[in-house]
Design a protein around this nucleic acid. Structure first.
Lengths: 235, 235
DNA sequence: TACTGTGAAAGAATTCACAGCA
DNA sequence: TGCTGTGAATTCTTTCACAGTA
């Protein structure tokens, strides 16, 4: 794995913050491409992605030198390079566990099937849902989890179950060799080293918004609130 | 707004990274409370929240000194203090725009109605959905957006529409005075200063997972891939 | 004694500002 | 000339390690 070549690039060390923004750039680039734009400056692309141009250039510099001074970036080429860096030039097989409203929303999500991700399986514990066809896939019973993961070569598991079931499901997918988990259940999953978990959590996002909203309005009150606590506790 | 009192606390300056973790601590604390635990050490709480204890203590120190040396934190009191800091001791009125599977999932989300958030309205552009009752609320037509925001005093708008509609919906809610937006549409919203937007994006999360998954497997290949690009472009 | 709270050190991420190149 | 790519400066975040205290 040390076969290197001419291209000078920071050896396998893209900052996490940069990785998190690459998908945003990619989306902006696709949108430019759809509008027939072939070349874009860092200033324009940054605006489309909602960041400042210095940050964008620094981020892209971690991938290599894919721009042209005095001109900008070629949209198609940059799409390819970012896709490659993110691993989207290969297909990742995804299984969704939990087919409530959220699971359905995820299954039906378009951008999913399109670039780099193949939804292979939908699983649920509720026997009444088994056999139902959603987004072209038959829902299977959770009992088949291990079999399905092995047969399809699932590498990313999306957990969209109720909170109480999430840890057990997680343990099972991890035991089956899955090392990437996207968790929608409102619970902190514990996993062994080497397994990546990302969490998407509506209520956390709302709470962060509430914090800022409150701040705009003047912040939490002082001693008055201290009194309210005493009352609240004594109810 | 400069009436201060004894409690020494960094004057209105809680780091953003800390704010983003407070909801996680809060959830962990509620879970401890449900299990009848009255007191917790930074070590235990940190484990439950999936962070290390130094970080937890530093985070909490930004709110004030709510622990007891040699003992730990009183669960109930800490819940109250964090809730207050996040602005959850008051109710925030939320409207969801877009009632597809995702909107339904959000509407049905339990933790929502419970702590600090009141779902006041569901809106959709599709006349066939108008009048349908979801989670106890009648879906209204998007034409009524401005009226609904004013009447209910909506302060947080959740955008769960298709991407093409999202910016227009966003413009309208902002024009109606909403300054906090939670966006589920896969698009960068542009808003004036003073408006907070948070984004939840499935495909970005998947892409970040794919990056790490690829890394585990050995990273993007070198010159071989460079050739593949040429072929891909020439299709 | 067993914990919290916090300065100080280390590490990451962002921004500045400009050299260098097409 | 007009842009990218990047060192250097700055700011933010995490971690260390221990003084202080119930």
């Amino acid at each position: 794995m040390t076969r290197r070549q001419n291209r000078s690039r920071a050896e396998r060390g893209i900052p996490e913050a940069t990785v998190a923004r690459l998908p945003v750039y990619l989306r902006a680039l696709h949108s430019l491409q759809d509008r027939g734009i072939a070349t874009v400056s860092s200033e324009e692309l940054a605006a489309a992605a909602g960041v400042n141009s210095a940050k964008l250039r620094k981020d892209l510099s971690h991938l290599g030198s894919y721009g042209t001074r005095g001109v900008g970036y070629e949209v198609e080429y940059l799409i390819y390079q970012i896709s490659r860096e993110l691993g989207l030039t290969q297909d990742w097989v995804v299984a969704i566990i939990g087919v409530g409203n959220l699971g359905r929303a995820l299954a039906g999500y378009g951008g999913f099937a399109s670039r780099g991700f193949r939804m292979a399986s939908l699983l649920d514990a509720d026997p009444r849902l088994v056999g139902e066809r959603i987004a072209g896939i038959d829902v299977e019973h959770i009992d088949r989890l291990e079999t399905v993961i092995a047969e399809h070569g699932v590498s990313i598991a999306v957990i969209a179950t109720p909170a109480v079931a999430a840890q057990e499901v997680c343990d099972r997918v991890v035991a089956s060799g899955v090392t990437s988990v996207l968790n929608f259940a409102p619970i902190v999953l514990s996993v062994p080293d080497g397994v990546d978990v990302r969490k998407v959590d509506l209520s956390i996002e709302l709470q962060i918004l509430a914090f800022h909203e409150q701040r705009k309005a003047g912040g939490p009150m002082g001693e008055q609130v201290e009194r309210e606590y005493v009352e609240a506790v004594e109810l």
